Computed example of a mutant assay.
Amino acid sequence: MKIIRSKAFTGERAWAALEIANMNGITTRLHWTDQPYKWHVNDGQEVFVVLDGQVQMRYRENGVEQAVLLEVGDIFYAAVGTEHVAHPQGPARVLVVESEGSV
């Protein structure tokens, strides 16, 4: 059993991760960041939940870049092949559920 107080987690670098669970190859991690990630496509599906702060999620559909501002409690689902990048608007904590080894 684990109890994780997400607001208490702060990384020493952008996108620092606290491993929460690995369930049959699906990882759940808590990330702290104050810097954008990089454009990428995951190997599988990804669920991205904002727990603290705001994150502008940029993604491409049919070659057209789009953006949405995610607030606390918002969830972004990236299907296989969805090119995306997260841009936190100040410090943010996000819960990410994805296939083990995803970028």
Rank of each mutant, 00 (worst) to 15 (best):
A79T: 08
V103S: 09
R60V: 10
L30I: 13
S102W: 01
Q45K: 15
V55D: 00
M57R: 05
S99D: 12
K38W: 05
G81P: 05
G25R: 02
A8I: 01
D43Q: 13
R60G: 01
E61Y: 03
R5I: 04
A8R: 03
E46D: 03
G53I: 05
T28N: 13
R29F: 04
G11N: 12
R29K: 15
L69M: 14
G11D: 10
I26K: 07
G101V: 07
T28H: 04
R13L: 08
Q54D: 09
G101M: 09
R60E: 12
G90M: 08
G73K: 06
E98A: 11
V64N: 15
M23Y: 14
A86G: 05
R93H: 12
D43H: 15
Y77W: 12
T82N: 15
Q54W: 00
W39G: 10
Q66L: 07
E19Y: 02
G63F: 04
E61V: 06
I4F: 11
I26R: 10
P88H: 09
D74W: 02
T82F: 09
P88S: 10
S102P: 01
G101P: 06
V49E: 04
P36E: 05
A92E: 08
A79C: 05
Q45D: 10
A21N: 11
A67V: 14
Y37D: 07
R13E: 08
E65A: 11
E98D: 12
A16T: 02
A21Q: 11
H31P: 03
V97R: 01
A67L: 12
Q45P: 07
L30N: 15
V64P: 04
V68S: 13
V50R: 01
Q54A: 09
D52M: 06
L69R: 08
A17G: 12
F9P: 06
H84F: 10
V96P: 01
M23P: 00
R5F: 05
D43N: 14
